[in-house]
Write a protein that binds this DNA or RNA. Structure first.
Lengths: 198, 198
DNA sequence: TTGCTTGGCGGAGACCTCTCCGGTAAGTTC
DNA sequence: GAACTTACCGGAGAGGTCTCCGCCAAGCAA
């Protein structure tokens, strides 16, 4: 008994956490708003255990999609490498929309990320950093307004959160993003063409 | 007993409803997210009664602010009378933001109004109608993009819903609205000045 | 060994939202 | 006025979220 459990000193917690995550991923893939209660039950742990590992629903969801968020941040760099700054920015926004709408539950967590909560720190970190790089590149290229902050962008695209992931969100998302892009462009520059500066 | 109750035929329901509304207004003014439970209790009615009168929280909140919503719709006309279309549009958005942030609970109801629910119909009715008038006037004046729908605007300003009414929301709201306005303007028109059309 | 500390665990319980249904009283018909 | 209809009322109960606390076992010190 003692030898068997040698590696399980503190490892028990790690395993419980991993198991919880696995169960949650499964549950969310079936039903995007599965109750935490049901997840704990399905994982065979008490509800208290779930809550100690993930104090809020957002914590759990974010943990589940941490990789996706990182990937989203990474995508900013990739897009900047392969495209002109403004195009990169636009493509990134489109990808952001698709990720948010596609992954069950991510949208809800993302929404609260714009305000408070642990998710706010952890998700906004990579996200705002990525946005900052995009904005910097565009500032250098003179394509977007020079006074923009990542938070402005995050707030400007908040309309995405109102969309119903189960419905026909794509055309509406496209419209929103288009509007936002125009709003973010330098006033003396045409949004996609090559108008003469003032 | 019978004479006393003459006017309470069906009026009992009306009175209960009014009393509920009164209690709710009071409760919300103290705590913007008072529980429906506590409101029913404070009003001295069963929770079921509250739910029959107001099937969802939004129904209750909307009823509370119905006058404000009407007023907001009316304001669109007033502003159009007194200002050029674009200014009217901007002033209206600013007022919208202030109303939404100021009135406890309205913001939450407004948020869900962009999607589904009874509030969606009832609040969006006046709101989208007002927006439609603003958009029409601006279309005629050539100031805003001619292809805009009220829903686009409602979605574009959804960032407001992320703001914390208790915090320092004003500068951020101002930034959002400014961005949105630029995005909604005709591309060949400067947002506030008089640039030459292409 | 024998405590003592500490991380991890489970679930009772407080409180909430929302549904459903039996009871009751107002109004109606005969 | 007796029976019937219909609105309205109250609260039990299902199911959620989240907190709190007692329990256990591992690791550590004497």
């Amino acid at each position: 008994m003692s030898t068997k459990r040698v590696e399980q000193l503190h490892a028990q917690g790690v395993r419980t956490r991993a198991h919880l995550l696995e169960t949650a991923r499964e549950a969310f893939s079936t039903c995007s708003d599965a109750s935490l209660n049901s997840i704990a039950k399905k994982a065979g742990v008490g509800i208290g255990t779930l809550y100690r590992h993930f104090p809020t629903r957002e914590d759990l969801v974010f943990e589940l999609y941490r990789a996706e968020v990182q990937q989203m941040a990474q995508a900013a760099d990739d897009l900047l490498d392969e495209h002109p700054p403004l195009d990169a920015f636009r493509l990134w926004l489109a990808r952001f929309a698709r990720y948010a709408m596609t992954k069950a539950g991510l949208i809800g967590a993302l929404q609260s990320a714009t305000s408070r909560g642990r998710f706010a720190q952890e998700a906004r970190g990579p996200l705002t950093a990525a946005l900052q790089r995009l904005l910097d590149a565009n500032r250098a290229a003179g394509t977007l307004r020079p006074d923009l902050e990542p938070d402005d962008v995050l707030l400007a695209i908040a309309g995405l959160y109102q969309l119903d992931p189960a419905g026909d969100w794509e055309p509406r998302a496209k419209r929103i993003l288009e509007l936002v892009c125009v709003g973010l462009c330098r006033r003396d520059t045409a949004p996609s063409g090559g108008a003469a500066p003032a």
